[in-house]
Computed example of a mutant assay.
Amino acid sequence: MLQKRKELKKCIKCLDDLQKEVSKRKTYKRLMNYMEQLQELQTEVDKRQGPQDGRYSITESLKLPHPIKLPEYTIRFADLDNCGRELLEDALNARCNAYVPYSKFKVGAAFRTKCGRVFTGCNIENVALTPGSCAERTALVKGISEGFKCYDAGAVVAYHESGFTTPCGVCRQFINEFAKTDIPIYIGQAPEVSSKLPAFNDDDEVLVTSIYHLLPHSFTVFK
């Protein structure tokens, strides 16, 4: 009988502990609900009062477009998708034809049309400077002149010891003209030493950005 009483006390103690644990969880849940409600109220108050310094986030502006942007990241060349690797290799090969007697800075680019055709280009300099053409625009002009006016990916390759070389401002605007939505732009660092068969190493770092990241507020006359 004594043993049974001990077991009964033990069971009662377990039940009490469980009851306390349940109460704690219910209390925590109620607390979290109150916190969420307070946060919503605070957000609503902040909206009505406005910021203390008079500045608002541009995401609240109705006069600016807020398109969906592709993710931006870096990745090993070997881990890229087939599209990225092929465009970078095409851009690297196009870079070999760069005409840069003045700057010595070679750039290659490649852009893929919606139907899968790829157009490549290199930068072409001129002694008068302004008639020159960037690699990105060279590639796109070739495709546009053949009737392809919509592109879904691009790549740019150059060598700069401090890091990646992204398109200049003019080229960003030019690329945006023929990208109906955000498109990935693969940026690779070319090998320092030119060779007859240039190639990327598997561990080479690649920047995967997009035209909307490069040009968040493009110029347009259309709504």
Rank of each mutant, 00 (worst) to 15 (best):
V208L: 02
D79K: 06
F174A: 08
D46N: 13
Q52A: 08
F219S: 09
F164V: 04
S57E: 08
K142A: 07
Y186T: 04
L215S: 09
G188E: 10
Y159A: 10
V127K: 08
R172E: 09
T59C: 11
K149C: 11
S133M: 13
S162M: 09
I185E: 02
I124S: 07
L18A: 11
D17N: 12
K142S: 06
S103F: 03
Q19R: 14
V221D: 07
R48D: 01
I183C: 01
N201Q: 11
T138D: 15
C168N: 11
S133Q: 12
I175W: 03
L197H: 14
P184A: 05
E125F: 06
Y99F: 02
R76H: 11
K114P: 00
V206R: 03
L207C: 08
V193E: 08
F219E: 08
Y99V: 14
R117K: 15
K180F: 13
E21Y: 02
T130Q: 09
E146Q: 15
P51Y: 08
A91Q: 05
D81I: 04
N97P: 00
N123R: 05
G143E: 03
P67R: 01
V157T: 10
T74S: 13
D16R: 12
Q52F: 02
G143W: 05
L64N: 00
K20Y: 01
I58K: 01
Q3T: 10
E161K: 12
R25S: 04
Y34H: 14
V170D: 12
A199T: 09
P191H: 11
S162H: 12
